[in-house]
Design a protein around this nucleic acid. Sequence first.
RNA 1: GCGCCCGUAGCUCAGUAGGAUAGAGCGUCGGUUUCCUAAACCGAAGGUCGCAGGUUCGAAUCCUGCCGGGCGUACCA
Length: 590
Amino acid sequence: MKPVIDIIDQQICQAIKTVSGEDSPAMVTVATDAKFGDYQANAAMVLAKKLKSNPRKIAEQIVEKLNISDICEKPEIAGPGFINLRLKPEYISAALLQINSDPERLGIDKEQQSKTVVVDFSGPNIAKEMHVGHLRSTIIGDCICRMLEFAGHNVIRQNHIGDWGTQFGMLVAYLNLEFRTQNSELRIQNSIHISDLEQFYKNAKAKCDADESFEKLSRQQVVKLHDGNSETLNIWKHIVDESRKNYQPIYNRLGVNLHKENERGESFYKDMLPGVVGDLKKAGLAKESDGAICIFPEGFKTKEGQPLPFIIQKSDGAYLYATTDLAALRFRINQLHANKIIYVTDARQQLHFQMLFAVAKQAGWVNENIELVHVTFGSVLGDDGRPFKTRSGENVKLQELLDEAVSRAGKIVEQKNPALDKEQKRQIANAVGIGAVKYADFSNNRTSDYVFSFDRMLAMDGNTAVYMQYAYARVKSIHRKAEEKNIDVDGEIKRAAKLNFTTAEELDLAKHIVRYGEAVEAATRDYRPNFLTQYLYELAQKFSGFYNACPVLDADAASRPTRLLLCELTAQTIKHGLNELLGIDVVEQM
RNA sequence: GCGCCCGUAGCUCAGUAGGAUAGAGCGUCGGUUUCCUAAACCGAAGGUCGCAGGUUCGAAUCCUGCCGGGCGUACCA
């Protein structure tokens, strides 16, 4: 089933063609005000401009040739030439029944051509606990994957973990020093945990700065690591495994679909780096400059107006993230056969990715059928408008942040619904707390910074996850009550051949349910979860209005099947949007 | 200096191709519960869309300049 807006758009385009012979855009949008109908087409003004003609007259001509009487009432022309369209109740009725017959996809078509899309997101640093700086990439990336999967694409999730580099030499040297007991194997297996690693890293760094002999040791460890020395490698591997014990549970709690098999960290590409540099040299793109191997893509300038280098090998011979990113990009195209590669990182890396893409294209690694996308996002800020930190200036650990959200939610559950059993309360607190954090992030415009506030996201009223979770729980409650009263919900819905909207609230809700596909399409197209949250919030609002105005179980026989279906589809839509696409849990009762 | 992003109600934010009287939430004020979960609903007040020009029948949206803020800008990621 195509979104209504697309059907209307198509029909108007056709009418324009018939009237003028032009391929002019239909400019269909949701009406700005309900009194103008449901949709409006602004095509006449655009076309009139082109033809230097009267827009109202053109609107009349378009309407005359317009063939949508099966979905819309008679179009009205208003103002300078707006074409106002109102959906027919019969159409809405048929659309809802069709959505109901397709619980898997809620009547939303897949994309015609499925692509292989690599999505690079999350990318935590090894040997450090995940902190609030990883939140956005992790959940926005996951949401993008979910949306693309739902659209029918073959999505390959790539967690480009930061597991390689000189800092590991330092860390290994430090562990060797501190944990090697006399004449025994390095006892690390049960003695080193993630919470320690960060401190060890700091200690190692300080020691490095203070102690020359230690600095030498750590440089030796870097060499050993690169040479694949098995003991060094084992310690490194332990560090990676230990780090995973920190971030995997966080993914699980966040409902983020990342696992060990999605990991392809920096270390995976280490052996490809000389080849990357060699190939770019051979192609004549990479040259030496001030001792470093650089590529100077067109259109990038330094402060002084000189060509800006994309450095792929430092003067000391070491490789950089630019090199790794090039290797990864080539791997994704050649080995993973990506048609599209999406990088989800904060906006500060924009220049890097612009240059990366430019270089990859100049090198001929990317043909016209491969799309490279950098999906950026803003920073998470504290109350003071500065990057969100603890009072002592440390990064806020994600684990602690989630604990706090769940614990705050738990207190509210306790207060609102003390009679529920313990396990239920725990589940609700989890869904509400984690949902609040994710939803607050999603509902902001991706590209802007936002101020993190537990109080606001957990305020339990307003545009928060819980508002939708509550709407969902109320529908489920109706189901439970129906059972008590021996009302056959499924049967009544199944027997409804045509719906009967008797109130403005029913019709309003019904129309909004029909629009779900539009919201999903827009959010997927622009990688913008906030289009989805906006839709879901409006849906929950309309449901609440309906719930308040229209009794369901006590409705008369003419109304009840329609109302039951509206409840059912509201619940399914909320569940699909919240759970399937945003990865936020819903609860049956709260 | 140059580049990118941002400036919308007291606060936090939307605004999906340039469209009709600029929208939410919080907060404020007022109302709703013998009725399916009041974590709810209904209503009111509140804005020269940073400033100044320009393009257009029409600008928060496009262009130019200015003011204010953030980020980036040769060997970190």
